[in-house]
Simulated assay, not measured.
Amino acid sequence: MKTLLVVLALAALAQAWTNTPTMIITRIAEKDLEQTDPKALSMAKEMLKAIDEFSGAGENTFVDGSVFIRAQDEAGFSLTSKWGYEFEPYFDGVPEKDTDDHAKFNLLDTVGMSQATVDTNSNSRINPAFGKSLSLRYVLNQVGNIHQPMRNIVRYSNQFPNGDNFGKDHKISIGGFKTLFDYFEGAAGQYKELSYPLTDLKTLDSYVDKLIADYPKSEFGSAVTNIEKRTWSQESYDIAVKHAYTLTSNDEEVKDAINRQLVLAGYRLSGNVAYMMSKQKMNKFQELFKS
């Protein structure tokens, strides 16, 4: 019961990349699972369906599952969005100093908590299917967040002695974006914003199919199977250092870095879902063995 209530609270505090990048990541994972582990995909969809009626999900259960957390936030159900960030300071040209903000940002911890709720056997007085369904939505959403560079870094500099608030205080005027955070959150404006629930699968698939063709799975090597979420966050941090704070135009190199993150996140999400569903199979086996 306690775990479920914690996850409910966390889900109400989350955001994500804007809808389309989030949907791209999840759709890549879905297509990969169709090829590599269709049983896991089927199990995940069944788990998500437990609260479809209450979440407003449409026909595309898996993709909609990843955007529900953001849709919930936009509907006014969150008090803060700090749970969607991992605080790592970047001291750019200024002396390092102690900060007291780290504990307020727990993206990696909350993903782990949500995944643990999916993994566990029934431990709630409430129907456990509800807690698992909500928690899986949270994992789908936040695996993508870990791959959004600006959600993993706070820059301290002469311009921002108290930090740049994940790039939200860093003003720009590039491609219609007003802050550095929004530029990365919106994937540099490369994709039309799709609605929740998803009604335009054809457009989404046109984006996904091109990205898969441009960035084949083989190109990422062992990075695809890397399961260390702390490493994922460090990679995003490094991308921000290399590309974000040197951004002067809507250039192709930055778009390439963003697109690579979208595809890599999708493949890693596929592996993560397959792992979680394998634990569901083991739990069911253990229950049968006990009986």
Rank of each mutant, 00 (worst) to 15 (best):
L41S: 06
Y191M: 02
D119Q: 11
A129G: 11
M43F: 10
S55A: 15
D251N: 15
E228V: 10
G84R: 08
L33P: 01
G176W: 08
V139E: 01
R260G: 05
I28C: 06
K39W: 01
T199L: 09
L107G: 13
T203V: 09
T117W: 01
H102I: 13
Q35Y: 04
V63P: 03
G163F: 04
S278C: 02
N60E: 15
L269A: 03
Q15D: 14
A50S: 10
L140Y: 05
Q15A: 14
L108I: 15
R151W: 09
G189Q: 02
R151M: 14
V7C: 14
R125T: 15
G93A: 07
L288W: 11
A116W: 06
N141F: 00
T117F: 08
F181D: 12
F160M: 02
A257H: 02
L79A: 13
Y138F: 14
A71W: 09
L288E: 14
T80F: 12
T246S: 13
R137D: 00
M282T: 13
N283Q: 10
Y196W: 08
V273K: 05
A223P: 01
V273M: 02
D200I: 08
M277N: 05
A44R: 07
E53K: 14
E185W: 01
S173V: 00
E46Q: 14
V154M: 06
R155A: 03
K171T: 08
E86V: 00
Q190L: 05
K2M: 09
